[in-house]
Amino acid sequence: MVDLKNLIEITKKIISREDVKYIVGYKKGTYGFQIMPAFAYTPEDAEEFIYSPLCSKNLAVYTILEEKLPLKRGEEEDKRKIGVVVKGCDSRAVVQIIQEKGLKREDLVLIGIPCRGVIEPKKIEKMFPNQTDLIEVIENDNSEYIINIGGKTHKVPKNELLSDVCKSCEFPNPPLYDVLLGEEVEITETEEFSKINELDEKPTEDKWEYWKEHFERCIRCYACREACPLCYCKECMADTLNPQWIRRSVNLSENTAWNIMRAYHLAGRCISCGECERVCPVNIPLMELNKKIERDVKKMFDYTSGLDEEEKPLFGMFKPDDPEDFIL
């Protein structure tokens, strides 16, 4: 359980430091179950910070969204650190970016939160539709969420609202942090991400039928890319014109190519925060692709992303005895 007072206290202390520019955390949204990312520049701003099971957004994305615009004459670069409130997966994303030399460890202050899983916004909005007033959700020790709506208290078993990726999360504790709030979560046995197994056993044609239906729907808004903390290329392969890897027209062929490309570029890098699937406006189960690759990579190369900043990237190294049963 995260002590809110403690969170605000620590945030205030960090933001008061001279070498910290701002801290990214969560605050209440504008209606219903909404939570929005908050930026604290001063200790007063930190008063708004909250943490609840509704805080699903992966804030690590803001470390790479930091804009470095061309400096005006006489202007000096602001080299102060950025603080981020990180859950287990968010912290792994940061580790992964550091590993790839996309960020420097010394440019960041990480406030770690041992995570007990977050609520899937789509699920809770379906269970309690049309809530205009802001609603708080608390988790009790009994694996239940306590939801207070209009004076009435609802108790919902955790499993019903928990995000699918959280159910199979193996790393709820941040591997990298400067301050850790509360005590580390005990890692209990996790469910396997079972959806992949079901599809894996089906014949090729059924697999294609399944994915065809999903990919046909894709509107190629690239929200999955923008929301992903690990999609931070200066120029995405999808945007280059020469060579043009995929065409901009929206049809099955290009949509499939885009989705393969996105998933593949996250091979050995995806940290399973589920953000891509959460933002997808047309409900494509993107995490199934990511999880499939994650499992393959684990099985074939015994590699897990985002745990050690010193480790080399998956595709930047090899072992002489990597599996090669598929080679003729």
């Binding site: 992949i196 599809l199 894996d200 090729t204 044609e205 059924d206 697999k207 294609w208 039928e209 399944y210 994915w211 065809k212 499939t256 393969i260 998933a263 593949y264 091979a267 050995g268 692709l289 499939k292 690759i293 393959d296 990579v297 074939m300 190369f301 998956l314 595709f315 930047g316 090899f318 002489p320 990597d322 599996p323 090669e324 598929f326 080679i327």
Partner: peptide, 19 residues
């Protein structure tokens, strides 16, 4: 060696999508 890793992952991904 690097190609072996890359293609191994790509091959399995394509298989999963139904190719």
């Amino acid at each position: 060696y690097l190609a072996r890793r890359r293609i191994a992952v790509m091959k399995r991904l394509l298989e999963y999508i139904g190719i």
